[in-house]
Nucleic acid binder design. Structure first.
Length: 357
DNA sequence: ATTATGCTGGACCTGCTAGC
DNA sequence: GCTAGCAGGTCCAGCATAAT
């Protein structure tokens, strides 16, 4: 079946009896003087003929696609929510966002998606801390398409114009302090090494937190990818626990924390009497489980906004310079070309001692 | 004569194909 | 192998006309 010829602005110009430039001006609502009659005529003709804008042609002409490419390791969870927020943010600035998933941290799939996005001439790329090597990334994006990273630490700025990172170090530090203050004298981090950089940041924060406590506390870091079931992780914790004070648990994310909480409750322990548990992400499910789960809240909108600002700046878009609250007011830290977004601990029943009768 | 308004003409964008 | 032409838009200099 041959494709039906598409209606173009040439057809509209002919039918409406004006030039194609006038049609372009009307349909793009450019601020050029035009009579209301011309505007009405063009709009009506476009409507009647069923015109649909050809973005490829527009990109060709403007040498700009107004399309951004985004690569996330997986759809769902934090990445799903962040992609949604990014999409909203990009749309607000007149950009369309194409989001691809790298199916975990598969460097081959990452490379393929990045290739496709560059072939499509996206104006910019927004990526997680990539699994593919920095050299390969440099080679791929080295031709002028700006790359803004999120949750990527230590990438040189000849590859990425900047990175907007969640401050897991301070966040986990605070979570450890919170668990200690709530009476925990054994503290365990349930890690997820398959998520590389973000896990390393959490580990660093966990260690920082422990080192700042007034006394040394038995601790462990259990990799949830290593143990067969979450019950095995619980058994490992039981071997460490002296039963004199509750155990504090910090999970890699809310899903892991909730899985652990279920295992604990199945085994007949009580939360928060025996186990005091915290997660990361502040997923909506944290307020519908029992007891409600303490979690580190992620300011998605702020992270998306800062990512968009870096991108607009790299694209020479003056809107990036518009007045926004000062970094101090938002507790943002800048380390070189990296921006650190603060996390906020939301304490709920799963970890609070004094809420008990 | 000068200025403002409303519109037009044509160069240009990139990558591919057809013709020479 | 080289060149011209095409796709469907954008952009801007410049034109015709009306108003001052």
């Amino acid at each position: 079946m041959s494709k039906k010829r598409q209606i173009t602005i040439v057809d509209i110009a002919e039918a409406a009896g004006v030039s194609i430039a006038t049609v372009s001006n009307v349909l793009n609502r450019r601020n050029v003087p035009m009579t209301p009659e011309t505007i009405r005529k063009v709009e009506q003709t476009a409507e009647q003929l069923g015109y649909r804008r050809n973005v490829m042609a527009a990109s060709l002409s403007r040498k700009k696609s107004y399309e951004l490419g985004m690569l996330v390791p997986v759809f769902g969870g934090y990445h799903g929510q962040f992609a949604e927020e990014m999409q909203r943010m990009a749309h607000g600035y007149g950009y369309h966002l194409s989001v691809f998933s790298a199916a975990g941290f598969d460097p081959e799939i990452e490379k393929r998606h990045l290739d496709v996005l560059l072939q499509r001439r996206v104006d910019g790329l927004i990526c997680h801390g990539l699994a593919m090597s920095q050299e390969a990334t440099r080679h791929l994006v080295g031709e002028g398409t700006p790359l803004v990273l999120f949750n990527a630490w230590g990438w040189p700025n000849d590859i990425a114009v900047g990175a907007v990172n969640l401050d897991f170090v301070d966040g986990c530090d605070e979570a450890v302090r919170h668990l200690y203050e709530q009476g925990c004298r054994t503290i365990v981090y349930l890690a997820k090494t398959s998520l590389y950089a973000t896990d390393l940041q959490r580990r660093a924060g966990f260690r920082n937190g422990l080192s700042k406590l007034p006394e040394p506390v038995p601790y462990d870091m259990i990799d949830s990818d290593e143990v067969e079931t979450i019950d095995q992780a619980l058994e490992q914790v039981e071997r460490l626990w002296n039963r004199e004070a509750p155990v504090g648990i910090l999970g890699f994310d809310d899903v892991i924390s909730l899985a652990f909480m279920s295992a604990v409750q199945r085994r007949g322990y009580r939360v928060p009497e025996d186990f005091r548990i915290a997660g990361i992400n502040n997923d909506p499910v944290t307020t519908v489980c029992h007891p409600m789960l303490t979690s580190l809240d992620i300011p998605y909108a702020l992270q998306a906004e800062m990512t968009m600002m870096l991108m607009l700046e790299a694209l020479g878009d003056t809107r990036a310079l518009k007045q926004s609250p000062a970094d101090e007011a938002r507790k943002l830290k800048r380390i070189g070309h990296e921006i650190q977004i603060p996390l906020r601990l939301i304490a709920r029943r799963s970890s609070i001692a004094e809420a008990l009768e």
